[in-house]
Amino acid sequence: MSDEPLIEDDDVTVLEARLEAGGARLDKALTEIFPTLSRARLQSLLVEGVVSRDGQTVSSGSAKAQPGLYTILLPPVASATPAPEAIPLTVLFEDADLIVVDKAAGMAAHPAPGCETGTLVNALLAHCGTSLSGIGGVARPGIVHRLDKDTSGVMVAAKSDRAHAGLSALFAAHDIERTYLALTRGAPSPERGRIETLIGRSSSDRKKMAVLRSGGRNAITDYVVQRLYGLPAKAGGAPMAARVACTLHTGRTHQIRVHLASKGAPILGDAVYGSGSPTAPVRAAIAESGLTRQALHAAVLGFAHPVTGEPLRFETAPPRDMATLERLLAEL
């Protein structure tokens, strides 16, 4: 089997090839079956956790290769250098080293195929000019972490290389306070708890993430149900919806969306993980609110300033679509 792309879209390119004999270093062996990728590129992909063998993630290039079917999920690469765009930003904090913004829903963090303009990077290039950190690469200057395009809320970007390195270390060590607010179909049970699972690519749909029994990467989310909506008349019945606060201890792709769905309480408006339909009153509330995305907002971001050491903490309220939906849910 060759390493020609099996799937290619705006989100991911999937390469697959079979290794018949093992024994050599994994990174070296992979260069034989994926000739379009350099050894250095393969080593980077292994560290990123996007290489798997027979569905199990492999991450050590120095480990001995085992025979099997290897899959690589190539992240999108922007086709051109992003240009500055005068897009309004809600700036919460800014100094010579970093900038904190309240990202609007519908804005991608950085350019990618199919979404080359209108991103946070384009806005930051216009706002910050040449002061934006270049460590993130040509397509992702200043970007240290990401929010999904349709998730609103607090994001920090680096304006200096020293801030970029410091912030990256904080995120890698999970030494960051991150709390999200979600409106869910039904409510997770119990009303307070910790979800700790392995998260990786779904074997049935490689464009989605899923809770796995083995492989993947460890993911931890603490959650608290803050309010229930549409309570049943009879005791013991399930509510129609809930507001749930989620605190991240790891930062896996789509972590909160996957974890809440795994508890039977997917986020309202989530077209990818929101399997099953909300009740008719909730559907009517969603339509009236104008919500066209997952009802997820990054409400709190706290960290020590990577240069000065000053403790920083930022908190923002959900934008109008989520606020309107919550008001309508409260009337159920």
Results as ranks from 00 to 15, higher is better:
I195F: 04
E177D: 15
A173G: 08
R185I: 13
A173F: 02
Y180S: 00
L170D: 00
E177P: 15
L183Q: 04
Y180H: 01
G186A: 08
I176E: 00
P190N: 05
P190V: 05
G166I: 07
A182E: 03
R178G: 09
T179D: 12
L181Y: 13
G186E: 05
L170C: 05
I176W: 01
A172K: 12
A182P: 08
T179N: 08
I176V: 13
I176M: 08
A187P: 00
P188Q: 08
G193I: 01
I176S: 08
P188S: 05
A173D: 13
G193R: 04
G186L: 06
T179Q: 08
R185D: 10
A165L: 14
H174K: 15
R178Q: 04
T184M: 03
L170R: 09
H174E: 14
R178D: 03
A187T: 00
G186T: 13
L181G: 01
E191Y: 10
S168K: 11
R192D: 12
R185N: 15
L183C: 11
R178T: 08
R185G: 06
A165Y: 05
R185P: 10
G193M: 03
I195P: 10
L181Q: 09
A165I: 13
S189R: 14
R194G: 04
T184S: 04
G166M: 07
E191L: 13
F171N: 12
G193C: 00
I176Q: 03
L167C: 05
I195Y: 03
P188W: 04
P188L: 04
F171Q: 09
S189D: 10
E177K: 13
A172Q: 11
F171R: 11
G186H: 02
S168C: 02
L181N: 01
L167T: 06
D175S: 12
L181V: 10
A172W: 01
A165V: 15
G186P: 01
E191G: 15
S189M: 12
S168P: 01
R192F: 07
R185H: 12
T179A: 14
S189I: 10
T179G: 10
L183W: 06
I195R: 04
T184P: 07
R192M: 13
D175W: 05
G166W: 05
T179Y: 07
I176L: 11
D175H: 10
A169C: 07
P188G: 07
L183P: 02
A165K: 09
R194Y: 05
E177Y: 11
S168M: 05
G193Q: 04
I195H: 01
G166S: 10
R192A: 15
L167H: 08
R192K: 14
L183S: 06
A173Y: 06
E177M: 13
P188K: 09
R192N: 11
G193T: 03
L167A: 04
Y180C: 04
G193D: 05
I195K: 03
L183I: 12
D175E: 11
R185M: 14
I176H: 02
R185L: 14
E177N: 11
S189T: 15
A187W: 00
A165N: 08
I195T: 01
G166N: 08
I195A: 04
L167S: 06
